[in-house]
Every structure is written in structure tokens, then in C-alpha cells.
Design a protein around this nucleic acid. Structure first.
Lengths: 335, 335
DNA sequence: TGAAATAATGTACGCGTGTACATTATGACA
DNA sequence: TGTCATAATGTACACGCGTACATTATTTCA
């Protein structure tokens, strides 16, 4: 393996100083055209490309956008529509601005290590996906915020903590779904929600309550079930929900809705016939079920790309950054 | 924002030289216990963590494993089961070895830029997903191989190029699927394949031919259709395939199978009733369809983790690396 | 108790780049 | 032609770390 060329060799061949090579390549300062050509030719000759690490080192910037992915036991992470779409959006926005994506899989032992990522300066900014509302996480984020490190939460927000946030309007989304069911004439609507450790679960509950409230329907806690956003939990919740004599079910995501429908079918209750079901996320899978699943569409891709865009712009512009807290709207896809 | 502490300040506070701080933190050489404690305490006081970029620079290693993702027009990349699972596996294996994952979205203009990734030394090794069999790609990979840069292809192999490769045995998988259909009594089996630019498409064709050959059935090119692995292409292929009076269809992936089934349903032909369908990938979606889709299970996650493990081990061990070319076996999931 | 071995620490420098500052070449203008 | 502005380039160093080598402290063993 022949050694990789450095600026030094290029400079020698072009008969200029290293600084000039640097200036030509970074297009800084006035350079005589003839010199520029000589340098470029020499660079080409050695197939020279600046060492990214050395550049990062000299510039004090990594050029990386960190993405923290949550640890979800037993789930192959990317498999979930949610993260997949979001990452695609983040990746596109980062690429556009010349940043690379550094993935950080958070596991249990490095749980409250958000700061470390910055201390070690491997990333210039950081997007955190799937944060939960636990004491440790909140504290870690508070420290991050106090240190004015540039980060953004997607899909999670804390009342106590004012920081960059990008989310979908789940209150609205949930409201739309339940209102739709009510409009269809359903009254006893069960809500199969996910863990309240996620603010978006709580938001969905608010939307559910809001829609019911508008119709003067009291909250019946027997109709409220908590799963964990897995298909299995939807499957398992089905028998209980059926016992409650509901005529419709609103699930916090499509996976649970699909699990619910599976159990329904096994029990010989035709899904969609005597019971209306609405899911959430409008994932690919919602189109494939039989019957297709009506679902709340969430702009995951846009959330990712917008979060990355805003975050990167805020660090590239050196002025005092304002905190952004944006909510993208959702809509119901009726099938 | 208070400035981030460096080794210098830690050394000053502990009353030792910078070298000693470095030695304590890297656990190298003999250190007096009392000194070690003083250093650790000083480090803790400043909340010191070594600058990862400076470390990379000094060590000449980035500590990153690059993952090149293909550009697929109009497709949100992570949405596909294939890449999602694989990335999860790669991520797990990399994390285990202390490497971070650097994602590289390949777009058209940087198509043949595999080398650049290494030249710039942002990654120590690289896994390439979804490579295609085009002239430029082959040439780029040949250069990479000639330069002895550590990389690994997943899901693609070239006859002309002997390099690290990890794949599933698609000849076998395809064979299993078609044999299953034959065993079920079907004779006219259409094959809805993906682009031959991917070696795995070609492998699947081999498996199809092998299974037919064993039964003495000649290849009928009217039964061979090429889509592009998208749901839409399966959908669009349906009318033609139906014209051919087939009694079974084997699709190169689940998405196409699902698209095919959709069109089938729209045409009033109950899927699974008068026509058997087998998909490929055993994706989540295969479980949700009605009826559920029999499909060839591919160990994507394991492919990713094994590829990463082998690659990283080969670069961590400094000895001459042997080329590995592994194929994991597939199996049929009957539904 | 002194020499040799070894432990413990310090000194000095390289890694490849960006860039402030110094220097020299070039042109403008009187 | 001399002066001065500006273009063009060179020199020198910092960035934070790892580590080879030098030095000093301590222990071992005769």
C-alpha cells in the first residue's frame, strides 16, 4: 500500500509553500492563476485529498452531526418506520450542508452520556431520538442545555426544560383520529396508548380527551390501555379491549393496531366489520393490512430534515442561537 | 459556555506532566498509585474527557466504521427492511468494538468516490451496501482493492473482483422457494425478479433455474419478469403475469410480492386462492398481508453484524488479512 | 552500603492542517 | 523613476494527543 500523499509533497512538486497549497484548495486569499494550476496539477498527480481528521483538528470542528438512537430491548432499531424515516430526513439535510452523520447507539450503561459526545468533540451538534422522561435523562439534558451545547430533541419534550425541539403535533393528530371515529358514529372508543414515559404518548392522550370532551363524553378509564408500541402488545391487549364492548379502537401506532387486528382475526372477529380501528404513523404496513388501516400520517422524514437543517444552520451562523420548538402538523389518511 | 478542559489543565492541577496524565488515562506503563489517584481526581474535577479528534489525529485512526448507503431515487432509504436490519447489525458489532458508525449517503455525483472516504481518512474501514454491477463501480472497487483498503461488500459480489464479501445464499433461498411451489403441485411458476445489476438478482435466477431443472421443466422466458424491487413494479407487473396463465408467482422481494397481491385483489382475483405466491426477505410486512405471505427469510441483521465483526477484527489484528467471502444460509417461512 | 535493575516521571516532538503575520513581487500613479 | 497600495507567497506556530527517549526515584541484592 503506497502511502497517502500530504500537503507537503504537493507543495514540493508545485514548487510552492504548504500554505499556498492550503490556500488554493480552500480558495482563500488571492492566488496567481498560474500558481493555482500548478498546485491543482500537483494535487492531482498525487491524488491528494486533505486528511479530514487533521482538518477537523485544525479547525476545531468535527464536521459530524451526531444522532443518538435509543436502546429498545429486543427490537432491531431501524426496523421501525419511525426511526427509519427520521434518519433518512436527517441524513439528507446533513449531506446538503456537508456534514457527516455519526450514529450513536445508546445502551444502558452509557445512558446519561449525552455530554460525553460533546466533550470528546466528535460531533458539532447532536439530534436525540426517542428520549424518555426519566430522572437521569432529564438531568443529563439539563446539563447539556446549561452548557449551551447545540442539540435538538425529536419526538420528545419536557415541561421543565426549554430546548430545541421538533415534533409532530400529536395532540392534533390524536384529536383528528378520535374525531373521525366519533363522526362515524362510534361512541365507546378504546385508546391503546404507548408508555407515558414518552411525551408524545401523553400528547396523544390529550388529543383523545379533547375529542371526547367536545362531544361531552366522559373519560372511561376502562377504555384506556397502555401497551409499549410493539405489535405484540397490541396483540395481547385485544382480549381485554374486546371485553369492554367497544365499537372502535384508536391505537397509538400502527404496529399495535396491526397486532390488535391479528388477534381480532384469530378470534373470528372481522376487523373493520363490527369494529373500527385507527392507527398512528401511517407506516408502510398500514397499506398492506386487510382491510387497509386508516392512520394518522406523521411527517417523520420532514421532522428529521427540518431538525437537522435548523440545528446545523444555528451552529454555522455564529450569532446567538434562538431556541426553536416546532410542531409539524399531522393529517388523517382514511382507508 | 466555559471552555472544555484539556490534558494540560489536568496535569497542572495534579502537579504532574501531561505525559503522566496520558499514561494514567490510557493505562500504559507503571504509575504510582497515589499519582494515579491525583490525576483521576483532577480529571474528574475538570470533567475532563480526551478530545476524540486529537486522539484520532495522534493515533492515525479515526475509530469510525464507514457505511456506504446506495442512492435509490425516490425511496426513503431506511424504510426498506433490507437496509434497516443490516444497519442494526453493523451498529451492534461496531459498538461492541468501540467503533462509531459514519454514514455515507452515496449520491450520483459522488458515485465513484469510494476511495475518497479512505483518502480523507475519516474511516478506518468501510462496509458498502447495495453496490451495483456497473463499469464505474467495478473500477472504483478494483482501485480500492488494489490499494489494500479494508472494505467489505454486503449483498453484492463480482466475478472479476476478489474482495471481502458477505451475503446470503440467494441461490439456495430462491431454490427453496421454487421447490416449495413445485412440491405444492404448481408447474407454471412466474419469476418476478429485480434488476440484474445486483448479483443477488442473478443468484435468485440461478436458484429458480436450478429448481426447475431438477424437475425437468424448461425455462420459459415469458414467465420471467424484471421489476425494480419496488412495490409499484410488482403492482405493474401483475396484468402481464396474469396473462401468462401461471399458477404461482415467486417474487424477488416482499415488496414486489405485496404490490402484485394488491393488483390481484383489485382485479378480483383472491390472492392465495387460485394462485400461490412466495416472497423474499421475510420482512415485517409479510406477516401483515392477507393472507400472510410465505417468504424466504434472510438473516440481514446477522449479515451486518458478521461483516462488521470480521472487518474490524481484520484491521485491529495487524497481521496480513485474509479475504473472506461468506454466505449465510436462508430458509423458507411458510405461512 | 553501593551497584544495578527497575519503577516512575518528565521532556520533546510528530501527526497534517489552518491561518496570523511577515515578507516579497507587482502594479498604479504622480 | 520613486512611492505606495495591493497582490502573492512564505514562515511559523497552534491545535491536543500519543509516545520514544531521557531522566530521576526507588528497590533489590550482593
Amino acid at each position: 500500500m503506497r502511502t497517502i500523499a500530504t500537503r507537503k509533497e504537493v507543495a514540493a512538486r508545485a514548487g510552492v509553500s504548504e500554505a499556498t497549497v492550503s490556500r488554493v484548495l480552500n480558495d482563500v486569499g488571492p492566488i496567481k492563476e498560474e500558481t493555482r494550476q500548478r498546485v491543482l496539477q500537483a494535487a492531482k498527480h498525487f491524488n491528494y485529498a486533505p486528511n479530514a481528521i487533521a482538518q477537523s483538528f485544525a479547525r476545531g470542528k468535527s464536521g459530524n452531526l451526531g444522532v443518538v438512537l435509543p436502546y429498545v430491548p429486543g427490537v432491531h432499531l431501524f426496523s421501525t418506520f419511525y426511526f427509519s424515516e427520521m434518519l433518512s430526513g436527517i441524513g439528507a439535510a446533513a449531506k446538503e450542508r456537508g456534514y457527516d452523520l455519526l450514529l450513536k447507539f445508546r445502551s444502558l450503561e452509557t445512558d446519561n452520556d449525552y455530554e460525553l459526545l460533546f466533550q470528546r468533540q466528535k460531533v458539532d451538534a447532536c439530534i436525540i431520538l426517542g428520549a424518555r422522561n426519566t430522572v437521569e435523562e432529564r438531568e443529563s439534558l439539563v446539563r447539556l442545555q446549561a452548557a449551551k451545547l447545540p442539540f435538538c430533541l425529536i419526538g420528545q419534550h419536557y415541561e421543565e426544560l426549554r430546548c430545541n425541539t421538533l415534533d409532530a403535533d400529536h395532540v392534533q393528530g390524536s384529536y383528528l383520529a378520535v374525531k373521525y371515529l366519533l363522526d362515524q358514529g362510534h361512541a365507546r372508543i378504546a385508546f391503546l396508548n404507548g408508555s407515558p414515559a414518552y411525551s408524545n404518548s401523553q400528547d396523544r392522550l390529550k388529543g383523545y380527551l379533547k375529542a371526547l370532551g367536545e362531544r361531552g363524553i366522559a373519560f372511561d378509564e376502562r377504555l384506556y390501555v397502555e401497551g409499549n408500541y410493539s405489535r405484540t402488545s397490541g396483540y395481547q391487549a385485544a382480549p381485554y379491549i374486546l371485553e369492554q364492548q367497544v365499537d372502535a379502537v384508536f391505537a397509538g401506532n400502527d404496529r399495535m393496531a396491526i397486532g390488535f387486528m391479528q388477534k381480532l382475526r384469530e378470534l373470528g372477529r372481522g376487523a373493520g366489520q363490527d369494529m373500527a380501528i385507527v392507527g398512528y404513523d401511517n407506516s408502510d404496513a398500514a397499506q398492506f393490512t386487510e382491510p387497509p388501516l386508516t392512520s394518522v400520517a406523521v411527517p417523520f422524514y420532514e421532522m428529521g430534515s427540518l431538525a437537522a437543517a435548523k440545528l446545523l444552520e444555528s451552529i454555522d451562523a455564529n450569532d446567538e442561537k434562538e431556541i426553536f420548538q416546532e410542531k409539524l402538523s399531522t393529517h388523517l389518511v382514511i382507508r
